[in-house]
């Protein structure tokens, strides 16, 4: 067994520096690497380029890094629900690149899978395709989108083992598996870290080969963004 376990978040984040590019798993506030984000705030690294579907809310998720002005550029598909984000974007402090959600997922997966780029129909004929190579296949037009290059990928899983194998729960899975192995170093934080042999190999969502460091997250708030219920 190749052991990926590290003692905690500070060891897991060794090597993070100013001006790096990071990937963050999560959709809205679901399945975000809360412990890694909190530690990045503590470390105070700045000038970051962040690849993440969303940008958190004012006081949670990537919003915490925005509050401290640690982010230089965001690459996302949807960035509502965040006043500080809006302020920095409109004042020009923050560079924002909006891209289609499926393209974001596939640019991560391409990096993970060793593809330099992929063709997608998404965004053809729109401003997203401006300046990009396009090509026709079987009468339909596609846009060439390049694989991301990132220094760290921060992901969150439900359960993991010391070999780095991961299992996710519900829709907290989202971009997390696509980002594993898509950056130079993948850091996984888990709610439950088990010894090897405790997870059924048939049930693994991400094999440990894609994960460089794994740690047990000390605190998961798991905040709900839109609490919707029905009456009994």
């Amino acid at each position: 067994m190749i052991n990926k376990k590290v003692a905690g978040v500070s060891e897991a984040l060794q090597g993070v520096k100013n001006d790096m590019t990071f990937m963050f798993g999560g959709f809205g506030l679901s399945g975000i690497p809360e412990n890694s984000i909190a530690h990045l705030v503590k470390l105070g690294v700045k000038g970051l380029t962040c690849i993440s579907n969303n940008a958190g809310v004012d006081d949670f998720g990537l919003g915490l890094l925005l509050q401290e002005k640690q982010i230089k550029k965001m690459i996302s598909s949807y960035v509502g629900e965040n006043d500080e984000f809006e302020r920095q974007m409109l004042s020009g402090e923050l560079n924002v690149e909006l891209i289609p959600q499926g393209t974001l997922a596939e640019r991560c997966r391409a990096a993970q899978a060793g593809f330099p780029a992929i063709y997608t129909p998404a965004g053809f004929g729109t401003e997203v395709a401006e300046g990009k190579e396009t090509r026709e296949f079987d009468g339909k037009m596609y846009v060439l989108e390049h694989a991301f290059k990132a220094d760290f990928a921060f992901v969150k899983a439900w359960k993991g083992d010391e070999a780095g194998n991961l299992i996710f729960k519900g829709t907290a899975r989202n971009f997390n598996p696509n980002m594993c192995g898509a950056a130079k170093i993948t850091v996984a934080e888990v709610e439950e870290l088990l010894p090897v042999g405790e997870l059924d190999p048939n049930q693994i969502h991400v094999p440990g080969i894609f994960v460089k460091r794994i740690f047990h997250g000390q605190h998961f708030e798991k905040r709900i963004e839109q609490r919707t219920v029905r009456q009994r």
């Binding site: 506030l29 219920v229 009994r232």
Partner: peptide, 16 residues
């Protein structure tokens, strides 16, 4: 139902 919301089970509108 109220009390059975799960932060890990949401839709694309981020609703439980």
């Amino acid at each position: 139902f109220e009390g059975e919301e799960d932060a890990d089970i949401i839709n694309a509108g981020k609703q439980t």
